[in-house]
Simulated assay, not measured.
Amino acid sequence: MDPTFKTIVDGELVELPATIATIRAELPADKAAQFDAEVEHAGADRLPLVLAQWALRSTGADQEDDELFRRLEASEDIGAVEADDDAARGAA
């Protein structure tokens, strides 16, 4: 069984292909050449990120992110706290 990425998209746990071959197999033919070129020229340190980005493209996660950033740009309170915020750690 091929490895998978696991992530949350729209509140649901999803498993995504996580090998070059399985990601390529999920792509439409017109995107496969673009994927191959990007993978072939990605530095070793960036390859996991490139693969994850391509695997996520079919999930709608990018639209979810776009909506979140739109809300942030509009200064909407989305309930986020800074990682170093004492309240985030439960300190009083």
Rank of each mutant, 00 (worst) to 15 (best):
T4D: 11
T4E: 12
I23R: 03
T19D: 09
A42Y: 01
I78M: 14
E82P: 00
E82S: 09
T7D: 14
P48T: 07
P48A: 08
L51M: 15
T4W: 10
E82T: 02
L49R: 11
H41E: 11
A80R: 13
D62P: 00
A21M: 04
D36W: 05
D30K: 15
L56F: 10
V9T: 04
T19I: 10
E76P: 03
F35H: 02
A42T: 02
D77C: 07
S58E: 10
Q53P: 00
T19P: 09
D36C: 02
Q63C: 00
Q63I: 03
E73T: 03
E40V: 00
V14T: 11
E67F: 00
W54L: 06
E26D: 15
L56E: 14
V9R: 05
E12V: 13
L56Y: 06
Q34D: 15
D10A: 12
L51K: 11
A61F: 13
F35K: 04
A18V: 12
D84G: 09
P28M: 05
D84M: 08
I23E: 03
D45G: 05
P3L: 09
P17H: 02
R71H: 03
K6A: 14
V50C: 01
T59A: 11
A87D: 14
A92F: 11
V39K: 01
E76Q: 11
Q34A: 13
D36Y: 11
T22G: 07
K6L: 08
A33L: 09
I20D: 01
E26M: 12
V50G: 02
F5P: 12
V50W: 00
E38T: 09
T59I: 04
T19H: 06
L16F: 10
R46S: 09
D62V: 01
P3N: 10
L13M: 10
T7R: 12
G11P: 05
A80I: 10
I23L: 08
